[in-house]
């Protein structure tokens, strides 16, 4: 029953996405374009002693992946936002479905989409000569890391979508927060290059741990830092998931559990 609900809703998300081909095309291409231009131009200005590698492109790949996941988090919450405003959420809530199906289907769909994009990014990077130090198993580990980050970002965006009075506020907040979230992390520069206060902020940012994990997998191999970074990411994801579930519960509590 539950699987049928999640599948049906995932079909809805998939069809909606596939119908908007241009949207899909640009969404898939965007990170690759970022990788080429952003890493290409910034790479020349980077000091290898600060970055810790001469291969800035490889260094930037995890940052671009995180960047993509953050951007997709915003679009992940959009259907919920609009279902809420158009009243279709009420129709769904009047059906004999589990409340969680709505959220879980969105996670499932978003993880699928993001995984596809991560693979495109890695493929473009491969073409540009970047080989993950951990090989094919590393690619899988990167996918898992990106999926965890997707969970965290989607949950955060869904919580925000539930909490705001309308989509105007949602976009104002996400527009305001997205770039600082990225730049207050190790997405494009290592933590050591930041002023002390910024390092403190970046250490509290879940992006930092996802990027750290992916960067170790890209550049260093299976290192001891990996479980630490992954552990922090799992913790952050779990926390955001709780916040998301709580906000969704609040949103739907008027609609009776």
């Amino acid at each position: 029953m539950w699987a049928q609900e999640v599948l049906a809703l995932s079909r809805r998300w998939l069809l909606m996405t596939l119908r908007e081909r241009l949207n899909l095309l640009f969404s898939v291409l965007q990170p690759a374009v970022w990788l080429v231009f952003f890493a290409g131009s910034l790479g020349g200005a980077m000091d290898a002693r600060v970055v810790g590698t001469t291969d800035y492109l490889a260094f930037a790949v995890p940052g671009i992946i995180a960047f993509t996941v953050v951007g997709n988090g915003v679009s992940a919450a959009m259907p919920l936002l609009f279902d809420k405003e158009t009243g279709y959420l009420d129709k769904l809530m009047s059906m004999p479905i589990r409340r969680s199906s709505l959220i879980v289907s969105r996670f499932v769909f978003q993880m699928g989409m993001n995984s596809a994009q991560v693979l495109v990014i890695l493929l473009v990077a491969l073409v540009l000569g970047v080989r993950p130090a951990t090989g094919l198993a590393g690619v899988l580990a990167i996918l898992v890391t990106a999926a965890l980050l997707t969970l965290a970002m989607t949950a955060a965006a869904m919580a925000l979508a539930c909490a705001v009075p309308s989509h105007g506020t949602f976009f104002a907040v996400t527009g305001f927060a997205s770039l600082p979230l990225l730049f207050m992390s190790n997405a494009f520069v290592p933590l050591t290059a930041m002023p002390a206060w910024m390092q403190v902020v970046a250490r509290a940012n879940p992006l930092t741990y996802a990027i750290e994990a992916m960067r170790l997998l890209m550049l260093d191999g299976w290192s001891a830092g990996l479980p630490v970074a992954m552990g922090a990411l799992v913790l952050a994801s779990a926390l955001l998931l709780v916040v998301g579930a709580w906000q969704f519960g609040r949103q739907t509590s008027e609609r009776v559990a």
């Binding site: 049928q4 609900e5 049906a8 079909r11 119908r19 908007e20």
Partner: peptide, 22 residues
């Protein structure tokens, strides 16, 4: 409020809701 499913066909919307009604 067709906004939530205006990119779907009538049949697709109906089938999806049929599944949601088990």
């Amino acid at each position: 409020s067709p906004m939530g499913y205006y990119m779907l066909t009538g049949r697709e919307k109906t089938e999806i809701e049929a599944a949601l009604y088990h």
